[in-house]
Design a protein around this nucleic acid. Structure first.
Length: 272
DNA sequence: AAAGCAATCAACCGCGGGGTT
DNA sequence: CAACCCCGCGGTTGATTGCTT
């Protein structure tokens, strides 16, 4: 271990005093109180000054991932899942960058979601989760089902003050550009073809998207990794010869919408 | 009811980048 | 320019919880 090489005897004593493992309620309260009074940042000195027997690193992690007031707890919504799939396809394992676009969600949470849900499915299908095959599978089958869930959940409540609009090829497109969407629809492209699905998602990002030209204002997303060009690339001949075959499943049935989403292995078969 | 296993997620670790001295 | 320190990121671990037998 790298740290151990540097450890002096006095450091060792300090390390011995440091607590590890799960945080207690008292520690949480102490950290919250200290940050409320003094603000966050400068974690090492914060850790010492607060009286916590934790490393600065540990304090930072506890605050950012759990204690910070704007951290959301609970399951990811279908909208958030779509965004994660979308942004991961664009940026790969850039968890913190992805998290920046999901207000209230932490990189740790997103990473855990990816590893426990998405990668698990890829493993079951015996494909690499970064492979074109798997990405195409997500695009063709999983995203539409998530969209369906979203549609169902929003059909009853239509009080959104801001929204994302989504279709299954281009997961998300700018909602303020209805005309733009219409133009594209009428101007032929495969992406905006007849199976185009426009769904208004109630979504209220608290911060602007940042980075790589995907920035829009608080009310508008434009995230286009599955754009026309790379969709065409996916569909082109350099893909291994494969087909996903529905295992006699009626995808329009509610049973899958209501069930847990990630059961692809039951739904699909690979056919060489 | 209990044991064994799997899934989940909070927390830790190593590393690299950037700033400071 | 090198050495050091701090911070944040991504990968990994391990404790806890839930499920199955």
């Amino acid at each position: 271990m790298r740290a151990s090489k540097k450890i002096t005897s006095s450091c060792n004593e300090q390390l011995d005093e440091l607590r590890r493992g799960p945080w207690t309620l008292d520690e949480d309260n102490l950290l919250i109180h200290y940050i409320t009074c003094h603000g966050e940042g400068r974690w090492n000195s914060l850790a010492k000054a607060s009286g916590l027997k934790r490393t600065g690193k540990s304090c930072r992690l506890r605050w950012l991932n759990y204690l910070k007031p704007d951290v959301k707890h609970g399951n990811l919504t279908p909208q958030e899942q779509i965004l994660i799939l979308e942004l991961h396809s664009k940026w790969g394992n850039r968890w913190s960058k992805i998290a920046q676009n999901l207000p209230g969600r932490t990189d740790n949470e997103i990473k855990n979601y990816w590893r426990t849900k998405v990668q698990k499915q890829a493993r079951h299908l015996k494909v690499d989760s970064n492979s074109k095959m798997f990405i195409e599978a997500l695009r063709q089958f999983l995203v539409p089902r998530l969209l369906e869930k979203v549609e169902l959940s929003t059909s009853s409540s239509s009080t959104s003050t801001s929204s994302m609009e989504v279709n299954q090829n281009n997961f998300i497109s700018q909602p303020q550009c209805k005309e733009t969407l219409m133009e594209k629809t009428s101007s032929n492209s495969d992406i905006y073809s007849s199976n185009f699905k426009r769904i208004v998602l109630p979504y209220m990002p608290e911060s602007s998207l940042q980075s790589n030209g995907y920035i829009v204002d608080n009310n508008n997303f434009d995230v286009m990794s599955f754009n026309q060009s790379n969709t065409q690339e996916l569909m082109s001949s350099d893909l291994p010869a494969f087909e996903f075959q529905m295992a006699g499943i009626d995808w329009t049935s509610n049973e899958f919408v209501d069930d847990t989403f990630w059961n692809m292995d039951e739904l699909w078969q690979f056919k060489k």
